[in-house]
Amino acid sequence: MSGHMNLTLKVWRQKNKETRGKFVTYKADDISPDMSFLEMLDVVNEGLTRKGEDPIYFDHDCREGICGMCSLHINGRPHGPKEETTTCQLHMRSFHDGQTIVIEPWRAAAFPVIKDLAVDRSAFDRIQQAGAYVNINTGGVPDANAIPIPKDVADEAFESATCIGCGACVAACKNASAMLFVSAKISQYALVPQGQTERYSRAQAMVAQMDEEGFGSCTNTGACEAECPVGIKLTNIARMNREYFTAKFFKQEEAH
């Protein structure tokens, strides 16, 4: 078993939303560097279950970096130390034998802890519901490429649309601001022709919902961009600001 490592974990344990949590220390022994971070936690949980203890509760689903369900603030950084990597795609080779790893849930008023390391991210769903949709044209199936979109615009919209909604931007931001997420969602529609109908009402509705949920304000530190597992850019936030101010100052009452 050469290359296997023994780790010390300091894990946030919290029974539910109402109770106060605390850190509990666990040993994770004989961990293969080829395991993913979540597999390492699975191993720890098996041990806990065998001992009849409550396993550590954490969010996960696809485990291939596309669903945005996994989270975890690992040694002070969302999704751990590797750039553009979700926790499920983070491997134990990014750590070394004997290391202490502190694992915390996302910390934000808008993301209350459900249990242990899992937080309630339904605030993101409500922001999406407020405006991240397009009106649907029913009728016959349209021809492919019937709507011309310049390649670079389509690419830019696609880049924004790659946001998996994991909440790492909120977790990383010193203000717990959700602006990277919201701006990516606004951008993916604002850029393409299909999104024009609700373009300005969308920006206003989604920003209003974001404020309602109690997220902080952006102070342009760039932490969100640096920690985003799919590389969403700060330019999205600038675009959101443009969309929002244009809507509020020039567009809202355009029909007289």
Binding site: H73, G76, T221, A223
Partner: peptide, 9 residues
Amino acid sequence: AVYDGQANS
């Protein structure tokens, strides 16, 4: 408890 701000900003 641990916040590594230097790593990202």
